[in-house]
Design a protein around this nucleic acid. Sequence first.
DNA 1: TCCTTTATGCTCAACTTGAGCATTATCGAT
DNA 2: ATCGATAATGCTCAAGTTGAGCATAAAGGA
Lengths: 340, 340
Amino acid sequence: MTTSPPSIVVGLNAVIIALTDGQPRVLTVSLPEDTPIEGGTRAGGGEGQRLLEALPTGPLDPEGDRTLELALRRWVCAYAGLELGYVEQLYTFGDRDRDPRELGGGPRVVSAAYIALVRESEPADGLGARWRSVYRFLPWEDWRGGRPQVIDEHIAQALTRWIDAGPDPEDRLHRRVRAGVSFGLEDSPWDGERVLERYELLFELGLVAESIRDREPLREGSTNPEIHRGLGLEMAFDHRRILATALGRIRAKIRYRPVVFELMPSTFTLLQLQQAVEALAGVGLHKQNFRRLVEQGGLVEGTGRHEHLTGGRPAERFRFRREVLLERPAPGVGLPGARH
Amino acid sequence: MTTSPPSIVVGLNAVIIALTDGQPRVLTVSLPEDTPIEGGTRAGGGEGQRLLEALPTGPLDPEGDRTLELALRRWVCAYAGLELGYVEQLYTFGDRDRDPRELGGGPRVVSAAYIALVRESEPADGLGARWRSVYRFLPWEDWRGGRPQVIDEHIAQALTRWIDAGPDPEDRLHRRVRAGVSFGLEDSPWDGERVLERYELLFELGLVAESIRDREPLREGSTNPEIHRGLGLEMAFDHRRILATALGRIRAKIRYRPVVFELMPSTFTLLQLQQAVEALAGVGLHKQNFRRLVEQGGLVEGTGRHEHLTGGRPAERFRFRREVLLERPAPGVGLPGARH
DNA sequence: TCCTTTATGCTCAACTTGAGCATTATCGAT
DNA sequence: ATCGATAATGCTCAAGTTGAGCATAAAGGA
C-alpha cells in the first residue's frame, strides 16, 4: 500500500490540568515556530528559532488505536510519562487553516481536544514539558485578588476605544453590550464561565499576540505597541483558544460534578479544597458557607486525623465521599458565596 | 495527485430536533443495511434489503469546507432542504469498528456529531427523510405519563436477572447500585439526564437490537426472544447512542440556557412552552410554578394578544425576551416542580 | 499569658422551590 | 340564560437554600 499524503489528519490535543501552589497549571511543551504539522507527535526542542508554548499533541493511529481516548492516554504516557486518570472530551476543532501550514498544501487537520485532570507531579521531563499557571495565558481570568489589573490597565480602555469606533450608533450599542456582558462591565455581573467569549473578543480586538500573528492585515485602531506585545502568554496554533475552552468547561462542570477531587490528594483540609475550587473558578469564596455546602452536601467525610501545619488551629483532614455520585443527581461543589 | 484510499474519513452526523404534536422529533433517513461507509453522502433508498433508520450523515470536504459546522449546514441544506438555525457540537465519536465495514479494510471513520434545533417543518422529502419521535427510539425516557410501561414490563426484570447473575456478592452489589442509579430504582431518584448511561446499560445487557447486531457472541442470560427483538426502534451504526447522547445534552442544557425557544414559534402560550419543556425533559411539570419561573425569570414577555383555542379561558401569547441572555449568567428554563 | 492565626459552630434574613387552593374567563350543552 | 367542563391565572404557605457575619475554639510564637 503506497503512502500518499493524507488529505485529513486527526490530531489529539491534551489539556492536562493539575493544581500546584494554589495555581491551576497546564502541561505545555515548547515548540519551535515551524514544526511539522499537528497530528505527528513532536516533543519540543528545536534548532534555534522562536519557541512557543503548545499543548501536548499527538496523532491518532487509525489502525492501532481502538478509541480516541485510549490514543490520547497512550501517547501522553509514552511521551510525558504521565498516567492520566480523569479524561473527558472537550471539543473538536476543525476550522481550515488553524494550522498555517495547511496553506502550503498540507492535509486538513481536525483536532479532538481532551481535558485531563491529574494530581500534581513532575512530568518526566527532558521533552521540554512543563507546568505553567493557566493564568499566565489568561491573566484576566483570575479574580481571586479582586478585579485583575490587566483589565483596568489595558482591556477596559481598548474595549472603550473599540466601542467608540463602531461605525453607527446601533453598532456601538451592540459592541457595548457585548463587551459589558463578556467582561462584567457596567451592570452586568462577571460570569466566570464565559472564558472563551472573552478570549475571542480580545482576539478580535487584536489584544492577544495570536491575532497579530494569525491574521492578515494589521488592525486599525490598535496602535499601542505595548498592547501589541499581547496580553498573557502567547501559545502556538489555536492552543490558547483551546485552553480557554477548557477553563470555561471546567468552571461550569465543577458546579455539578465533583471533578475537583480529581485534582486533590486523597485527604485534604477544607481550606485546601476551598482553595482548589477558588483556583479553578478564579474567584474567592465565603469560607463558612463553603464548608456548609460540601459537608452538608455529603461530598466529604472527616477522617478524624488533623493537619497541624495550618498556622492556626489544626484542621481536620477530609476525604471525598464517592457515594455521593450515587445519591444525588448533580453533586457539584457549587460556588457558594462568591464574594461580591 | 493520485487518489489512494484515505486512511481516515471525517463524517458529520446531525441530530436535528424539532417539536411536533407534543413530541420531540428527530430527522432520520432510511438506510439499506450495507451502505457505503459514513462520510460519503448518502440519501436513503436502496434495493430491497432491510432498511434501518439513521441520522443524516455527510462528509467533510477537507478542501472546500471552512469549518465543520458550515460543512454540516451546507449538506443538510443541500440534501434535506433544511436551513439550520441553532447548531452546537455534540461529541466526536471515534471508536474503531463503529462502522462494521471498517473491518473489511475500510478507512477509519471519525464522526463529529452536532445537535441542531429547528422549528417544525416538513423536510424536502423524496430523500426518505422523516421526523420520528425521539421516544420511539428511547421509549424508557418518557416519564410524562408516569413510569414508562417498558421499564416495568421488560427492563426491571432484566436488570434484576443481571444483578443476580453477578459472579460474586461484591459484583452483585455493584450491579445493583449501577442499575438503581441509572434507572431510578430503589431509593435513587430518576435523573433525566443520564440518557446515555441507560442506553449503554441496556446495550450491555443485550436488550437493544444493536447489541445483538454489533456484538460477537450471544449473551448468556438473555434468553427471552421477545426481549431479543429489542427495546425501542433500532438504528444504523451507533446512531442510537448518538441520539441518546444528544437527548441527555439537551436535557442538561435546557436548565441553564434558553434553548427551548429555538424550537418554539415566535409567539406561544405558556402551556405550549411548558409542554415543549416537558417533551424534552420527559417529565411533567407543575404548571403554576413553571409560569412563575419563566415570568419572574424574565425569559418571556406578554404580547397582549390571546389564544382562544385553548378549550378553556383564553391564554395570553408570549414571546421570548432575548435580553435575558445579557442580564443573567445562566438563564435556563429549569425544571421547576417536576412532579414527584 | 497574650496575640495572631486559622478552624469551626451558629444565627438570621432574603430568596427560591414545591404544593396546592381559589378565582377568572371561555365554550358548549341544557 | 345557566350550568359544567376546561384552562388560565393569582396567591399563599411551608420548607429548603443562600449570602453574610458574629462568636468561639485551638494551635504556635512572642
